[in-house]
Design a protein around this nucleic acid. Sequence first.
DNA 1: AGTACCGTGAAGCAACGCTACATCGAGGAG
DNA 2: CTCCTCGATGTAGCGTTGCTTCACGGTACT
Lengths: 307, 307
Amino acid sequence: MSIQQLRMLREVALRGTIVAAAQSLGYTPSAISQQLGGLERSTGVAVLERVGRNVRLTDAGRELVRHAGDLLTSLEAARTAMEQVAGEVKGTIEVSVYESVAVTLLVPLLERLAVDHPDLRIRTRQLEVEPALEAVAAGTIDVAFTLDYAHAPMSQRAGVSCTSLLEDVFCLVVPDDDPITSASASLEAVADRRFISPSLSSSCGGGVVVACRSAGFEPDIAHQIDDYPTILRLVAAGAGVALVPGLGLVTPPRGVRVVAIERPFSRTIQIAYRTASAERPAVVAVRDALVAVVDDLVDGRGAALAA
Amino acid sequence: MSIQQLRMLREVALRGTIVAAAQSLGYTPSAISQQLGGLERSTGVAVLERVGRNVRLTDAGRELVRHAGDLLTSLEAARTAMEQVAGEVKGTIEVSVYESVAVTLLVPLLERLAVDHPDLRIRTRQLEVEPALEAVAAGTIDVAFTLDYAHAPMSQRAGVSCTSLLEDVFCLVVPDDDPITSASASLEAVADRRFISPSLSSSCGGGVVVACRSAGFEPDIAHQIDDYPTILRLVAAGAGVALVPGLGLVTPPRGVRVVAIERPFSRTIQIAYRTASAERPAVVAVRDALVAVVDDLVDGRGAALAA
DNA sequence: AGTACCGTGAAGCAACGCTACATCGAGGAG
DNA sequence: CTCCTCGATGTAGCGTTGCTTCACGGTACT
């Protein structure tokens, strides 16, 4: 009975089918099937039963899964404790980033870590918020960037902790030649404009619609584009206005003006990590570095505004 | 970081040296060294440090060992729980027997189990009491027969449970033509005889000496022999008298008489097993079968005495 | 200095774990 | 009912792992 087998069993229990578990863990279905077969052979207890063309856990299998979760987190807790007394920041950390976060936070994070902890390797992957949280829980990802919108609070799951990095306030972005010239404006002032927004299925796009509705109008979304640099270009070209979070505005292109919203709404940028690995020196280093990066960013923005 | 690596690390921590751990787990030292090397490589944390020609755990290693114990028992608890809901008695159980127990209890145990649970395989090994307890704790042995003498109480260890099977009373065994003809006698009556006894280093031989001393004399041990059938033969041949536990007397040879001791002393026959596996159906089956065997044995002896 | 012994590394070999591919069997669509 | 899809599972093959054997370096004990 190996750790690997328990991991696979747990994943099958979670996903429901072997193919899904295989995909989630990055194996072929055959590998999962063989490992679980080996588990059944070594213990002499049937763990799966075929039902139709699917597979289902037996009572014994469910009982094993119940313990497997604790076991896997205990294992990681053990490793964390060990690394903690060793105290060295090294090894490799798997990070997942979310689109708009990548440019603004990831790059300075990597720069800072390269200086402070040269023995720490960071590998990154791009994932949506929900898959990222699943990957964190499964152990594929160590640290995930996530977003929390007021209208779509992030799902919580057992064994995963979060820390908030910053409150990312949305601003109204208009073309240079827009009639609105004040430093701030109410959303109602642009109720009849055409909007450029990320796709509504994403939480970012959803946030825009929710904000407009609570301001009393349904936005006319003329263009659905998922990355903020392009959105800003479209605004500059006069295709419409956009509601863009601060992180999308660190280097605004020419031709646009940023206008504060009078009753602003925001999202919180968070990182998620397993509670069992929260105190790993490497994870602590990433977290600390990120907080420092965010501090720099806020200071920089403050300084820029002052100038 | 695998279970195997944790097991090996724990054994090294327990035994102090790599060779000892290797011997205890049935591997070569090289295997242990390589596995622990792999552990250090995969975690990036040094677990061992060379000191002289030995090796010592680092702080990180000790921390890991602290968790490893819990992890391994959790793993077994998981397996136990799973098998328990499955409810089937199958698989293989490793049993260790102690010399005198083997004939009397092991054979009827195997016979009974073969009938009641044909899918259960029993493998046996002969081990002294202390090594057996260690093997139980280490997981090499599932069920160990052990003896508990009043003068040498069995060492207790964490995670290992015991159940007493029977109180095994010592009797005096004399040749047929011995002057003692009564059904019972005091130890003092044989103070000046020559004794045949198991070696004093064993707890059985020690028990004999302690009993004689508390009766006020130092026994003259003329022959040190470690198995009871031979001892009985020697008694029959007139080489001396012996103090023999009941289990050594189920089939006494010709030429000897069994005499009860007036202030009898005894040992308790126990079985030891890991607490985490106490409720495994297979372990439960062995335990239950043994209790039944002992019941039969006592009944049979009672019946024999009555006849 | 000699010797016994512990830990480690290199070579070799069996077993393991994975992928790719084929097969079986169960639904679902026509 | 038949075709087709899809999930699970075997089989062959290949790279890797994990062990043993053997040899070596280094330390302590005599």
